[in-house]
């Protein structure tokens, strides 16, 4: 029995590793640039790697560098980080619904690795989320992020301009690759994604709110509107059926 459980865990871990490859590729240019910028902002190699190891959240790490350069205080930098990363709360709440009956401690450990990217992969995968899968997924994403942050600082240069720019598309292409298969089979998914995109575009292009809040707001608006529409549709149909 124990063997069976171990076997299941290791195959789930492998599955997680495989699903994480696109994230590993996508983080490569971003982490490399982060390392380079951290160096020019005056962080040491240890500080740079430590930040990637402890924070593990791309957008907020970039923002902290520009705040350091402005000479912003530590408290403000931490507050800004909190605001930028609060969107993960919504993502974890979503994954919690989908997660397997693993011990709480496992979830509290793998929660550390939840980013926009690992969330997207885990949330769109078939079947429940297991500890093995999440650890495999996080391992690839985390290694890529931490190692290439350090490499960026060490070599003090980024990729050739053309490659740097074209690799910038990687994570967006991955999001599209995760979304489209579900769009093909469900009109509801199409509406959800389009509304999320439209709301976020309106909020960010008009600079109504900061990026972190805009994504949360757009996501909630779209998810709630579509859910209300669904409930209303069901109720309407229900009345129809009874007649």
């Amino acid at each position: 029995m124990a063997d069976l459980v171990m076997e299941k865990d290791s195959s789930q871990f492998k599955k997680g590793l495989q699903s994480g490859i696109s994230i590993g590729i996508g983080y490569f240019p971003i982490a490399l640039t982060f390392g380079l910028l951290a160096k020019t902002s005056g962080l040491s190699l240890t500080e740079t790697v430590l930040m990637s190891m402890i924070v593990f959240a791309g957008a907020s790490q970039y923002i902290s560098l520009s705040l350091i350069a402005y000479g912003t205080g530590v408290f403000e930098i931490i507050l800004t980080t909190f605001i930028v990363n609060i969107r993960h709360f919504l993502m974890s709440a979503t994954l919690n619904e989908k997660s397997d009956d693993d011990p709480l401690i496992n979830k509290i450990i793998y929660a550390f690795g939840i980013t926009d990217e690992t969330f997207s992969v885990a949330a769109t995968k078939d079947g429940p989320i297991t500890t093995g899968f999440m650890l495999g997924l996080n391992f690839v994403a985390y290694s890529s992020w931490v190692v290439f942050s350090g490499v960026g600082h060490l070599i003090g240069a980024s990729l050739p301009q053309t490659l740097q720019e074209s690799m910038g598309v990687a994570l967006y292409a991955m999001f599209i690759g995760l979304l489209v298969p579900s769009m093909k089979v469900s009109m509801k998914v199409v509406f959800l994604a389009v509304l999320g995109a439209v709301f976020n575009s309106i909020l960010t292009i008009n600079e109504i709110m900061a990026q972190g809040w805009a994504i949360v707001t757009a996501t909630l608006l779209s998810s709630i509107i579509i859910e209300i529409a669904e409930v209303l549709k069901k109720r309407y149909r229900g009345v129809d059926d009874e007649e």
Binding site: M91, E97, A123, G168, G196, S222
Partner: peptide, 23 residues
């Protein structure tokens, strides 16, 4: 129900408008 919708709405918001402004 709302939480089940979140992944697809988030993906839409993560892709647009950011992908248009890579360059």
């Amino acid at each position: 129900g709302v939480l089940k919708n979140v992944p697809y709405a988030t993906l839409g918001a993560l892709i647009f408008p950011a992908i248009i402004f890579i360059q």
